[in-house]
Design a protein around this nucleic acid. Structure first.
Length: 354
RNA sequence: GGCUGGAUAGCUCAGUUGGUAGAGCAGAGGACUGAAAAUCCUUGUGUCCCCGGUUCAAAUCCGGGUCUAGCCA
């Protein structure tokens, strides 16, 4: 038999459901007068450059806050890419349930649109089980999806896909740009015409929608944000560059010691080279080059480390220019280093975005 | 010790018949609609190893020196 009781003093209700748990007995909040009433629970988001220490801190936070983790990393979807991506270990995943990891074979490519759909499902699932949601990872474009629309809901017909791909194969970038000028005259300055990764999809979207680039851009800007109904608390973890460099160097060494080369051999046998995002990622591409004799084995570790350092620069630029709403948390600060969990809680409190 | 190369941007190197230098990488900044650990754009004054010579003019030709790589003793 369930016993309900009305609490005299309401504890903060992290899920916003109006149900707070007290010694295992559910209590019902009869009326919910505050403005949070119709709001859904907060999505807690933690990002930061690679090797900053996201995994350790977020696992502790999740354990202390009845949360599960939704990965926001563009490589952790891929099965078998464990060592080189610093994927949470089986032990860590046993401690805290993770979502968004090992979703597809490494030979299949995933993308941000599929990620958003997966994330919606995972979030609903966690909430339905009374869990808090902690989103963490270093893929800036994917993190942005929690704060702004990042993809058009448009579906592109196969015929359009083929038409544009063929055009690019035959006439190259010039052909694509020429067609783009016909389809969307006057506003081709709104797109990087020298970048095939921008022009090809843009042309596909124009052809599929019948709209110009300007119209499509305006529509995306005004599109409903996929997680609009949730308040978000976003924190950006940071460290001094030198500290980060040292952590990266020792992590790279550890990856090689732990069998990164064997991991690459296995993945190659599973055709992961069909997926450019997978086989071109840092750690993997350098090992492939070494195995193919294109890179001296004694150079490999230093190359991986350097490329990872470059990734940090790129990530920091993205965070700076695209995600200014995040609350920065400098992990090297003495006050933070002594109690990072408390510092994170504080940063979340400051960083709530309705 | 002898012979032959080499010495130019932080690194690897181009530099045409002499007209005071430019690529790639690295670094810095920027962009970003289904590959984002991806992709693209912008950004280059440096004792051209040193000293002397030839010349209107030398990174470039000549002589000497220093360092360096390889070969021969």
């Amino acid at each position: 038999m369930l016993r309900f009781q009305v609490k005299k003093h309401w504890m903060p209700d992290p899920l916003g459901y109006g149900i707070a748990f007290d010694r295992g007995l559910p209590s019902i909040r009869l009326m919910i007068p505050d403005r949070q009433a119709h709001k859904r629970p907060i999505l807690y988001v933690v990002t930061g450059p690679t090797a900053v220490g996201k995994t350790e801190l977020t696992l502790d936070w999740a354990a202390a806050n009845n949360a599960e983790i939704l990965s926001c990393d563009s490589l952790l979807f891929y099965q078998g890419m464990d060592i080189g991506t610093a994927k949470p270990t089986p032990k860590e995943r046993e401690r805290i349930a993770h979502h968004g990891i090992d979703l597809v074979p490494a030979s299949d490519s995933f993308n941000v649109a599929r990620y958003v759909e997966m994330a919606k499902t995972a979030i609903d699932d966690m909430h339905s089980r009374g869990k808090n949601v902690l989103i963490t990872g270093g893929s800036g474009f994917y993190i942005k999806a929690f704060f702004a629309p990042v993809v058009d809901p448009l579906s592109i017909p196969e015929s359009v896909e083929n038409e544009v791909d063929e055009l690019y194969d035959c006439k190259g970038l010039v052909g694509v740009v020429e067609k783009l000028r016909q389809v969307s005259p006057q506003d081709t300055d709104r797109i990087d015409l020298q970048n095939p990764r921008r022009t090809i999809p843009a042309l596909k979207r124009c052809l599929a929608s019948g709209m110009s680039i300007t119209q499509l851009q305006a529509r995306l800007r005004d599109a409903p944000q996929p997680f609009a109904t949730y308040p978000k608390a976003g924190v950006l973890l940071l460290r001094d560059r030198d500290a980060l460099r040292n952590r990266i160097a020792s992590r790279t060494r550890a990856m090689l010691r732990d069998g990164l080369v064997d991991e690459v051999r296995k993945l190659r046998a599973q055709d992961f080279e069909h997926n450019p995002s997978a086989c071109g990622s840092i750690g993997y591409r350098e090992v492939i080059a070494m195995l193919d004799g294109k890179c001296a084995p004694e150079q490999m570790e230093a190359t991986i480390t350097r490329h990872t350092d470059q990734l940090v620069s790129k990530q920091l630029k993205w965070f700076r220019t695209q995600l200014p709403m995040l609350q920065p948390l400098q992990l090297d600060d003495p006050g933070v280093a002594t109690n990072p969990l408390a510092a994170l809680a504080k940063a979340f409190a400051i960083g709530v975005i309705e």
